[in-house]
């Protein structure tokens, strides 16, 4: 029998917080890349895709007339843990143009070990040599295993490794499962 456990869910951001975070990140991207030329926003499949879509839409409003290319990248073929755990491809990659010379903003929902981002960087390489790659995430939950850091962060959230962090348009929820000693 499993030991008794308590399950706790904490909502740390609500829908409005998410919207504000994405808007702020969009402004920061515009500010940082004023003369950057071609800007390509690429969401990591699948959690980063809706965020990338919103960022790209925001940027074209903030800077009227600036065209922002939007793409997605699936990292499953580039993971370093293939065959250590089940790797199931999510949805195919769709990179709209040759990335050579472009500034790429890579977008994901949660930054954790950094291994997904490492795989994404390798995946992007197969589509050209970007001038620069920047990283935007809604939640940075720590516990990095690789020298990777985000350029744009919605919120830094200290977590335990056993926690589960869910990010969606309606908010961010941390699920904690704790073992409870009987009696």
């Amino acid at each position: 029998m499993n030991p008794p456990s308590a399950h706790r869910e904490t909502r740390i951001l609500d829908a409005d917080d998410i919207r504000r975070a994405v808007t702020r990140i969009s402004h920061e991207i515009v500010e940082r890349n004023r003369d950057a030329g071609a800007l390509v926003v690429i969401g990591i499949q699948t959690g980063g895709v809706w965020i990338a879509e919103q960022i790209a839409a925001n940027i074209s409003v903030i800077e009227e007339g600036r065209t922002v290319a939007l793409g997605t990248v699936d990292v499953s073929m580039y993971r370093d843990d293939i065959s250590l755990r089940p790797v199931v491809p999510a949805a195919p990659t769709s990179v709209p143009c040759d990335l050579t010379g472009a500034t790429v903003v890579l977008v994901d929902n949660v930054l954790y070990t950094g291994r997904t981002v490492r795989a994404a960087l390798e995946a992007l390489n197969d589509h050209g040599r970007p001038r620069a790659v920047q990283l935007a995430v809604i939640v940075d939950r720590g516990h990095r295993e690789l020298p990777i850091r985000p350029d744009y962060v919605g919120k830094n959230v200290p977590t335990h490794m056993a926690d589960d962090v869910t990010v969606g348009p309606d908010g961010v929820v941390i699920s904690t499962t704790m073992e409870v000693s009987a009696g």
């Binding site: 499953s76 073929m77 580039y78 293939i82 199931v88 491809p89 195919p92 990659t93 995946a123 589509h127």
Partner: peptide
């Protein structure tokens, strides 16, 4: 067949090769 969709996308690239295996 869903995984094959991924592979078809890879095969459509200028460099159709990934490090998966």
């Amino acid at each position: 067949l869903d995984v094959a969709d991924h592979m078809a996308e890879i095969n459509s690239r200028p460099v159709p090769k990934v490090p998966a295996l």
